Amino acid sequence: EPREEEAEKYIKRANGDYDKAQELAKKDGNEEIAEAIKEYKKR
């Protein structure tokens, strides 16, 4: 799923820090991806 791939990219950029990844996504205006990262975190 493209959303998950995007989320993974942010998580990698944030060195595995989900909260930081979420912030990066929000900064880029990717609210949807920020949500996907939140879902990811719950797994």
Rank of each mutant, 00 (worst) to 15 (best):
E6R: 06
N15R: 07
I33R: 01
E32A: 12
Y10K: 00
K20D: 05
A34M: 09
K41T: 05
E23K: 06
K9E: 14
K12A: 12
L24H: 05
E4R: 08
E5P: 08
A25Q: 01
Q22C: 03
G16M: 04
A34S: 07
A7G: 03
R3D: 13
R13P: 03
Y10G: 01
K20W: 11
N15W: 06
D17P: 01
I33C: 00
K42F: 11
E4Q: 11
E35Y: 07
I33W: 03
K27Y: 11
E31P: 14
E4P: 06
G29F: 05
A25G: 01
D19K: 07
R3W: 15
R43E: 10
A25F: 00
K27A: 15
E23M: 10
G16V: 01
Q22L: 15
K41L: 08
R43I: 12
G16K: 03
G16C: 05
E4W: 15
K41N: 05
E8I: 15
A7R: 05
D28R: 00
L24K: 03
K38R: 13
E31C: 07
E31R: 07
R43M: 11
E32P: 07
E8C: 09
E39F: 06
R3M: 15
A14M: 03
A7T: 08
L24A: 08
N30S: 07
I33S: 03
K42V: 12
D19M: 06
A21D: 00
G16S: 03
E5R: 11
P2Q: 14
D17G: 01
A36E: 08
D19Y: 06
D17N: 08
E23Q: 10
A36V: 13
D17K: 02
A25R: 00
I33P: 01
E31K: 09
D28W: 03
E4I: 11
A25C: 03
A34C: 03
K38I: 11
E32I: 09
R13N: 08
K27I: 12
K9R: 11
N30D: 05
E4Y: 14
E31A: 12
A7F: 12
G29N: 07
Y10Q: 00
L24G: 02
G29S: 04
N15F: 08
K26M: 15
G16F: 08
E5V: 12
K41C: 04
E23Y: 08
Y40V: 13
N30V: 06
I11V: 07
P2C: 05
N30F: 14
K38S: 09
K41S: 11
I37D: 02
A21L: 01
K12L: 11
E35C: 03
K20P: 01
K38H: 07
K12G: 06
L24F: 07
G29W: 02
K42I: 13
N30E: 09
A7I: 15
K26A: 09
Y40W: 11
G29M: 05
A14F: 04
K27G: 08
K26Q: 12
K41A: 15
I11H: 00
E23L: 08
D17R: 02
K26L: 15
D17I: 03
Q22W: 15
K41W: 08
K12S: 10
R3Y: 15
K41P: 04
K27P: 01
I11E: 01
E8G: 06
Q22F: 15
A25P: 01
K9Y: 12
K20R: 10
E1Y: 14
K38F: 10
A14I: 00
Q22M: 15
K42G: 09
E1R: 14
I33N: 01
E23H: 06
I11T: 01
E35Q: 10
Q22T: 09
A21R: 01
N30P: 00
K20M: 13
